[in-house]
């Protein structure tokens, strides 16, 4: 296999679909491990289907993938492959095989060439309601919330997060390490705000009159500035 290893991540209704292509299985797993490491907080607690393409994989190959995922608290639940040997092995391991991946909740842009950032942030999840305590949205692309994000709720996105309302919960933009990700809200007062590997809290002082704000990473720290027309 001459092509370079290619790992792409998409959101599907049942969780995430990770597509592994090119190179050897070990090389694919190595790159998957790297992705998992960078976006650990994004993947944690999630469930994943692996689209392995037409590779003939043995049980220990799939078990290696499952073990790798489980070290990041990710559950492997399904395998997508046209290869009968692989799907047979997967079925024997109790995994779902070739489920309907057509049921995407959100539009996922067609895969673009080797442009990792573009790929990760493709697809926008639109949440047309308020997220209350205990509710969470994990999505590899951008997330838009038309509503509030209450304290105790959680939004984790590979790309930007925009909240057309007040943001009081925990938010993590650029969860795969994209420091260019931004968080915008009409009232930006999150419990905790993370962008890539940076963490910030809202100031402890009493509530001021809320103004729309945008948070981004500037010289290695998170800064919030009024959100208005540039």
């Amino acid at each position: 296999m001459g092509q370079p290893v290619d790992v792409t991540i998409k959101g599907i209704r049942q969780g995430l679909l990770i597509r592994l292509r090119g190179g050897t299985w070990d090389a694919q797993l190595a790159q998957l491990a790297e992705r998992l490491r960078i976006g650990a907080s994004f993947f944690k607690g999630g469930q994943v289907a692996l689209d392995v393409g037409d590779q003939a994989l043995a049980q220990n190959d799939l078990q290696a993938a499952r073990d790798l995922l489980s070290t990041y608290e990710v559950t492997l639940w399904a395998i997508v492959s046209p290869n009968d040997d692989t799907t047979l092995v997967a079925a024997r391991m109790g995994l779902t095989v070739n489920m309907d991946v057509g049921e995407r909740v959100e539009a996922v842009a067609p895969p673009t060439d080797d442009d990792e950032v573009e790929d990760l942030s493709s697809g926008v999840l639109v949440i047309d309601r308020t997220l209350r305590s205990g509710q969470k949205a994990h999505h590899p692309g951008h997330v838009i919330v038309f509503g509030d994000v209450h304290s105790g709720a959680e939004v984790i996105a590979g790309g930007h997060v925009v909240v057309w309302g007040s943001l009081r919960g925990v938010v993590h933009a650029g969860a795969f390490g994209d420091e260019g990700a931004r968080v915008c809200a009409l009232d930006l007062s999150p419990t905790q705000l993370r962008i890539a590997g940076h963490i910030a809290r809202s100031p402890d002082d009493k509530r001021r009159r809320p103004v729309p704000e945008m948070a981004q990473v500037r010289s290695h720290r998170i800064e919030a500035v009024p959100w208005k027309k540039n």
């Binding site: 209350r132 305590s133 205990g134 509710q135 304290s151 105790g152 709720a153």
Partner: peptide, 13 residues
Amino acid sequence: VRDADRVIGLLEA
């Protein structure tokens, strides 16, 4: 209030 919010979320769902 936080717990009430959680319950409201469950009921709305």
